[in-house]
Design a protein around this nucleic acid. Structure first.
Length: 463
RNA sequence: GGUGCCAUAGCCAAGCGGUAAGGCAGAGGUCUGCAAAACCUCUAUUCUCCAGUUCAAAUCUGGAUGGCACCUCCA
């Protein structure tokens, strides 16, 4: 069995991606904190790792894919208090909006989409285990902290010596910790905060413990891959490793993948710079699919710059793919050709596509392989047999499907009214009545259709 | 200060030791009643700069310059 290669943050090397059980991958992706609409930066891991999943499935594997919702968090609580509603009112709203955006970008629903608020017993359980094993301690006010110095491998993901981390760490107001690097597993609740009963105190979980608990609950103690944005490497993922491995005495995840950040006008997105874009707003202007396409145009470990100019370019590029696909359908219905050389071109595109995707998910190169097939189709057109074109179309759809693009094709039956207008237009064109012909084109446009005149007759496009 | 990453045409971007993929934009042409799309040709003798290694470097090494990230619960 051939495996793709991925860059493993743990070893900082490209490695063969070998699952625990051949043909089955267990993947956990850190999801968003739901206190607002997601921004385009949030969309990057969602789309990239969805593409990884699609690719692994395309290559014949089964994938168990889990992505969480962080619905207990300071920012959510703050927003809820501002609006005078409960935290879960805020969380449920933006969770729902998040899924609307994911659906818009053609991200397949995860097999499990756990919420922190539904995982409290498991969180308490791990916390208790860590305390029992001496990896965690409780303070007077009811907080529970992880004892970082009890885990010798701490820092193995971020590749930072503990001393350096220690010098950079801060102690927040009111924290009483043995070491500045220790982090909260459980926080005793303060007034105005949601709380859950626990053996430690009435309180709520810390940030990092939730992913350890949800990953274990839905995928087991050891998984194949854990991924997320590169900012999560430290402290979030480092801490997850510490918690999970100390609790289970097993490897938490064999592979770690992290996507680079997305910038706007070459600057970090931030509210103060006023360069903050939500997926929702961009989708209204350009459509969701262009966002997905855009995210695939660069390698996931490279920084990606977002500007309106670049998005506009992506829209044109995507258009070329759509046009070729529509052309393919038209050709299949009208070709009189006898060749089948397009089959070889399609086979080559597929083989090349697999080759570049195997190399650490090179989606940018993957797209270029689709464009090579586009050119082959556009060049050879009516010379090919119907069967050969069908073969190419199947391959075309396969590859686009792996990248998750080309999902907005209009496949509705063309209305009789439109067909009649096109027929009338053909007649008046025969009579060289160009005025009426152009009128009809306008009428068709008003109905949402476009007509192109080709040597094989009029091609009707649903726009 | 510690740890990493990046620099390829007007724009986006792959390539990572063997002589510059792909897309967008642009110019000219073909086709067309006009369109649209498509096709053909052109658009980096060169990969930020300077040294070095090598038969061979955008690709490796050293240095410089510029940009970015993490070490601050931001994907």
């Amino acid at each position: 069995m051939e495996h793709m290669k991925v860059f493993n943050t743990l070893t900082r090397k490209k490695e063969e991606f070998i699952p625990i059980k051949e043909g089955e991958y267990k993947i956990y992706v850190c999801g968003p904190t739901v206190y607002n609409y997601i921004h385009i930066g949030n969309a990057r891991p969602a789309v990239i790792f969805d593409t990884l999943r699609r690719y692994l499935e395309y290559r014949g594997n089964t994938v168990r894919y889990v992505s969480n919702i962080t619905d207990i968090d300071d920012k959510i609580i703050k927003k809820a208090n501002e609006e005078g509603v409960s935290f879960d009112t805020v969380a449920r709203k933006y969770e729902s909006e998040y899924y609307t955006d994911l659906d818009g970008m053609n991200v397949k629903p995860a097999d499990a989409r756990p919420r922190v608020s539904d995982t409290i017993p498991e969180i308490i359980d791990i916390t208790q285990t860590l305390m029992d094993k001496g990896h965690a301690y409780k303070t007077e006010n009811g907080d529970v902290y992880f004892r970082v110095h009890s885990f010798a491998e701490y820092g193995k993901l971020s590749h930072q010596p503990l001393e350096d981390l220690e010098s950079g760490a801060r102690i927040a107001m009111g924290e009483i910790k043995e070491s500045p690097v220790d982090f909260a597993l459980w926080k005793a609740s303060k007034p105005g905060e949601p709380q859950w009963a626990s053996p430690f105190s009435a309180g709520r979980p810390g940030w990092h413990i939730e992913c350890s608990a949800m990953s274990k609950k839905h995928l087991g103690e050891t998984i194949d891959l854990h991924c997320g944005g590169e900012d999560l490497i430290f402290p979030h993922h480092e801490n997850e490793i510490a918690q999970s491995e100390c609790a289970s005495d097993k490897i938490f995840a064999h592979y770690w993948m992290h996507n680079a950040f997305l910038n706007v006008d070459n600057q970090k997105m931030s509210k103060s710079l006023n360069n903050f874009f939500t997926v929702r707003d961009i989708s209204k202007e350009y459509g969701y699919e262009v966002i997905r396409y855009f995210l695939l145009t660069a390698h996931y470990r490279s920084p990606l710059n977002f500007t309106r100019e670049i998005i506009a370019q992506c829209k044109s590029s995507l258009e070329r793919i759509y046009t070729a696909r529509e052309q393919l359908d038209f050709l299949m219905a009208n070709t009189t050709g006898t060749q089948d050389t397009i089959k070889a071109a399609a086979d080559k595109a597929k083989a090349d596509f697999i080759s570049v995707m195997n190399d650490d998910l090179n989606t940018a190169d993957g797209l270029s392989k689709i464009f090579e097939l586009v050119t082959a189709i556009n060049t050879t057109g009516t010379l090919q047999t119907k069967q050969a074109l069908e073969y190419a179309a199947t391959m075309f759809d396969e590859l686009c499907g792996v990248l998750g693009i080309l999902y907005n094709r209009k496949t509705d039956e063309i209305p009789q009214q439109v067909k009649d207008l096109v027929a009338e237009r053909s007649e008046v064109r025969q009579a060289k009545n160009w005025k009426r012909a152009d009128e009809i084109r306008d009428e068709l446009a008003a109905l949402g259709y476009e007509v192109k005149d080709t040597p094989q007759g009029p091609q009707i496009l649903n726009k």
